[in-house]
């Protein structure tokens, strides 16, 4: 059973194309990071999976059923971006209301509130809550009824670092117990260690998807080596230039260390040769981060020409 399966899915909003031929899958026990600039189609993708809208093209199945079917939505947890609740009700009342709607056990209500750290505030009205507390309540809401598919849109907004770490730990536990999780976030360094796969959307099309290794290979971005010379910087530079079969890399002197940007395929030959030359005292290797990969696929100048409405 797949958590969801999008095949060649398209969606149009007033003739403007929002999604174009998106293929995306999520299996149980997997955390998928869904990334993209504002208006890239992340929220639309999630709304399609939730069954709030119908795709105009392609096919879509969710938990082996059709999106929006009440037997399917019962097993989906969703935390929207900027989650809001009824300000006059207490956290406990709100969670009980949503638990009843979902057909979840009401005993879960205090348990979940404690789990997200709202045990002291569960009987206070939501209008007294801070943004972070509202976010925690939203999270508790998404976890009602032990969902098989959990979709979180910017879950860490307003959370302090400790709460953020708690959240990721919780997501890992859920994943290990077989929940499929979609994580939309702009805090790329934060989510990088926790996602199994990433999907990058731009202008409604899926630019890349796969695990980090596959994305790195696909992007073919240079690996950065920080080399500390044994002797002088110049002799180290010479040693690099003399390497056979290595495209001449870009080198930069930073505080008496040499920063070398090398193609992934050249990395090992270069390192082997340098080790043999004895010119290197210490090596630091920086793989392209999720953020680097993201920028690579999205393209630069994001702020200038993007700015779609979510």
């Amino acid at each position: 059973m797949s958590c969801f399966r999008l095949e060649n899915v398209s969606y149009r909003y007033d003739k403007a194309t929002v999604l174009q031929g998106v293929d995306l899958r999520l299996e149980p026990g997997e955390i998928l990071g869904l990334f993209g600039h504002n208006g890239a189609g992340k929220t639309t993708t999630i709304k399609l999976i939730l069954g709030l809208m119908q795709p105009v093209g392609g096919s879509l199945s969710v938990l082996d059923g059709s999106a929006g079917d009440s037997q399917v939505t019962r097993h989906i947890g969703y935390l929207p971006e900027n989650v809001m609740f009824y300000p006059q009700l207490t956290g406990r009342e709100i969670l009980a209301h949503f638990a009843r709607l979902k057909g979840a056990d009401l005993r879960q209500v205090p348990e979940l509130l404690t789990q997200v750290g709202l045990d002291d505030a569960m009987d206070a009205r939501v209008k007294t809550y801070s943004k972070g507390m509202r976010q925690r309540l939203g999270l508790a809401q998404a976890l009602l009824g032990k969902p098989k598919l959990l979709m979180l849109d910017e879950p860490t907004v307003g959370l302090d670092p400790v709460a953020t770490a708690d959240l990721y730990r919780l997501l890992r536990t859920l994943r290990d117990s077989g929940t499929g999780i979609v994580l939309c976030s702009h805090v790329l360094p934060g989510v990088e260690p926790y996602i199994d796969r990433a999907a990058i959307l731009t202008d409604g099309a899926l630019k890349a998807s796969g695990n980090l290794e596959a994305l790195r290979r696909q992007a073919n971005m240079p690996v950065t080596l920080m080399l500390e010379p044994t002797g002088s910087l110049d002799s180290l530079e010479n040693a690099i230039r003399q390497c056979n079969g290595v495209t001449r890399p870009v080198m930069k002197n930073i505080n008496n260390r040499l920063q070398v940007d090398v193609r992934p395929a050249d990395k090992m030959p270069l390192l082997t040769a340098l080790m043999a030359s004895g010119e290197v005292a210490d090596v630091g290797i920086h793989q392209p981060t999720l953020e680097d990969i993201y920028v690579h696929f999205i393209g630069y100048g994001g702020l200038a020409h993007r700015g779609g409405v979510q």
């Binding site: 709030l52 969703y78 929207p80 009824y86």
Partner: peptide
């Protein structure tokens, strides 16, 4: 406007 309609519609509720 309160932001709860979207959430309600993701529940098993027509």
């Amino acid at each position: 406007e309160g932001g709860t309609l979207l959430l309600l519609m993701t529940y098993p509720l027509s």
